[in-house]
Simulated assay, not measured.
Amino acid sequence: MRLTKIGGLVALISLTFSSVALAETTKNNFYLQVGSNRNGDPIVLDLSSVQGTEYTLLEQQGNSIVRRTLRAACGQGKLFSKKLAIYEANGNLARVDRTEQEIFPKPRSADANSMEIVCRVATNRTK
């Protein structure tokens, strides 16, 4: 997992959630791998970013880190992209796109897996 650019590696553990997933902690953050991109690089859910049904996914693309903020409408089964930020290898912000739009995740994709996790947590909190 190449998220060491974001912080120091503290631990790497394996979890089971509908399949095997990797989790990594760095300083005050906890990351859960929810999928991978075409290059096989992990796409991770930043669990410390979850606020209600809004959350962040992180993905490495080449030498850049892509940070996507998503919002799930759990009761309606919809997912919305709220913000896309691309960071260069040196950590500088290269681009921000705040276009909000509905996205249609494919089953078992990182988007679908993360939405399932966030919606389950949100549902359990209201019980």
Results as ranks from 00 to 15, higher is better:
Phe104Thr: 12
Ser48Tyr: 02
Gly35Glu: 03
Leu15Asn: 11
Leu45Trp: 01
Arg2Cys: 03
Arg125Phe: 04
Ser18Gln: 11
Ala112Cys: 05
Pro42Glu: 10
Gln33Met: 07
Thr69Gln: 13
Ser18Lys: 08
Asp97Ile: 04
Arg68Thr: 12
Ile103Phe: 04
Ile117Glu: 00
Ser109Ile: 06
Val44Leu: 12
Gln101Met: 11
Ser64Lys: 12
Asp111Tyr: 09
Glu59Trp: 07
Glu102Thr: 05
Lys106Gln: 15
Asn63Val: 02
Leu3Val: 07
Arg98Asn: 14
Ser64Leu: 03
Pro105Trp: 10
Val10Arg: 15
Val10Ala: 10
Val121Arg: 01
Glu24Cys: 06
Ser48Arg: 13
Ala21Val: 11
Thr99Val: 14
Gly35Ile: 05
Ala110Arg: 06
Met115Thr: 15
Ser48Thr: 14
Ile103Tyr: 04
Pro42His: 00
Glu59His: 05
Thr4Pro: 03
Leu3Ala: 06
Arg108Phe: 13
Gln60Leu: 08
Ser81Gln: 13
Ser18Trp: 00
Arg95Trp: 01
Tyr87Thr: 02
Thr99His: 10
Asn113Cys: 02
Arg125Met: 12
Asn29Leu: 11
Lys27Asp: 15
Thr53Lys: 09
Gln60Ala: 09
Gln60Thr: 08
Arg2Gln: 09
Gly75Glu: 13
Gln51Phe: 03
Thr99Lys: 13
Thr25Ala: 14
Thr56Pro: 01
Lys127Gly: 07
Glu116Ile: 02
Asp97Pro: 00
Gly7Tyr: 05
Arg98Ser: 15
Asp111Trp: 03
Phe17Tyr: 15
Ile6Trp: 08
Lys83Thr: 12
Leu58Trp: 13
Val50Thr: 06
Phe80Leu: 10
Ala21Lys: 08
Gly40Ser: 06
Glu59Lys: 15
Glu24Ala: 14
Arg71Lys: 15
Asn124Ser: 15
Asn63Gly: 06
Ile117Val: 14
Arg68Leu: 14
Gly62Ser: 06
Cys74Gly: 01
Gln33Leu: 00
Val34Tyr: 10
Glu100Gln: 15
Leu84Phe: 09
Arg98Tyr: 05
Asn39Gln: 12
Thr56Asp: 08
Glu100Ser: 15
Asn37Val: 09
Gly91Gln: 11
Arg125His: 04
Thr126Gln: 11
Ala85Asp: 11
Leu93Ile: 04
Gly77Glu: 02
Leu9Asn: 09
Leu12Cys: 07
Arg67Pro: 05
Lys78Ile: 00
Ser49Cys: 10
Asn28Gly: 08
Val118Glu: 09
Gly77Ile: 02
Phe80Gly: 07
Thr123Ala: 15
Thr69Pro: 01
Pro107Phe: 00
Val66Ile: 13
Leu70Val: 05
Val50Glu: 05
Glu88Ser: 14
Val50Asp: 07
Val34Ser: 13
Ile13Asp: 10
Phe17His: 12
Asn124Gln: 14
Thr69His: 00
Val66Cys: 01
Asn90Glu: 08
Gly8Gln: 12
Thr4Trp: 08
Ala89Pro: 00
Ser36Asn: 15
